[in-house]
């Protein structure tokens, strides 16, 4: 029996572990090694250089103009994007499930909630490049851009420095697009969780004299805690990979003047300008960056599960 159990465990683990070791673990270990060489991607005689690449990335002007803004931007995205998406999604989900007028003590969502659920989700099924190209056309900087045309229609003059070409807002716009495309999914996800909360709980809470707002914070949110945590992790992964949108939407893929640089884009830049070892070093920085943030957020969000 014991033997059979061992055999069972092995047979179930061998494929996933092998696939994972070959496709995920081993390339990462190799990349760690490359980050400590002077491999350009084309020089056969590269050698071990220790931490030179890392030193350069942080202290040499030529490299730090890419790395430092990218670190800041990723940190910003990682904090702001999930918070906003989750807040919006929770708000919408609450509206759609509980926000409607009460009729005979029944708790319901607002009218048209089915319609909203379909529409809000839709951006999520679009391919990320379609989203990028679409918003690129919307934010086109001259008067042929969609947004500028709309503004002209209501009599607001075209924004003189463009949208994506304005260093002060380009990153916010990228984030807006990320939010635009993900809110729907989390709305459906949260509202699924909300609909599984027994309506008696709401009704009891309301009979106790709690307002909707109070109900939301006192009843709904605690019960959704696990879903929120799941969403947080997944959104965190997306926030670190803002590269696709930056690549498609922003001027000079990270510009203007590095004001929408993200770590993935910086890696891409170094790979494609024959500095493969530096690219790997950026990846290693990204790894430790992520690791730190995960540690911090795990500590911050550790708490007991709420049972009901």
């Amino acid at each position: 029996m014991k033997q059979r159990k061992g055999l069972f465990i092995t047979s179930f683990l061998v494929l996933p572990v092998a696939l994972y070791a070959i496709m995920v673990i081993s390339p990462f270990l190799q990349a760690f090694y490359y980050s400590m060489t002077n491999w350009t991607g084309t020089n056969p005689n590269y050698k071990f250089v220790g931490l030179d690449n890392f030193k350069r990335l942080f202290t040499n002007e030529l490299y730090s103009v890419y790395l430092i803004p990218a670190l800041k931007h990723n940190a910003f995205l990682l904090i702001a994007m999930p918070v906003i998406v989750i807040a919006l999604a929770l708000f919408f989900a609450f509206m759609l499930n509980v926000g409607g007028r009460s009729r005979g003590s029944r708790i319901r969502g607002v009218g048209g909630s089915k319609f909203y659920k379909i529409v809000f989700f839709f951006p999520q099924v679009l391919s990320v490049t379609v989203v990028g190209v679409l918003w690129g056309a919307i934010f086109r900087s001259d008067e042929y851009g969609f947004l500028n045309s709309i503004l002209a229609l209501v009599g607001i003059p075209t924004k003189p420095s463009g949208w994506l070409s304005d260093p002060d807002i380009v990153l916010l716009l990228v984030m807006l697009v990320m939010i635009w495309s993900s809110v729907g999914f989390y709305l459906v996800y949260f509202s699924a969780a909300m609909s599984s909360i027994p309506t008696e709980i709401y009704e009891a809470s309301m009979l106790d004299g709690a307002s909707r707002v109070q109900t939301f914070f006192k009843v709904t949110l605690p019960l959704l805690f696990e879903s929120v945590q799941t969403a947080w992790i997944y959104l965190g992964i997306i926030a670190l990979d803002a590269f696709a949108l930056v690549f498609v939407m922003t001027p000079e893929q990270g510009g203007p003047n590095h004001s929408s640089e993200v770590l993935g884009g910086v890696m891409y830049h170094y790979f494609s300008s024959s500095k493969a070892a530096v690219a790997c070093a950026v990846g290693v920085v990204l790894f430790f960056f992520t690791l730190t943030l995960v540690m911090v957020s795990l500590r911050a969000t550790r708490r007991e599960r709420v049972e009901y």
Partner: peptide, 9 residues
């Protein structure tokens, strides 16, 4: 793990 880091290997 950032997927990017693994790409070349």
């Amino acid at each position: 793990f950032p997927v990017f880091l693994a790409l070349v290997p």
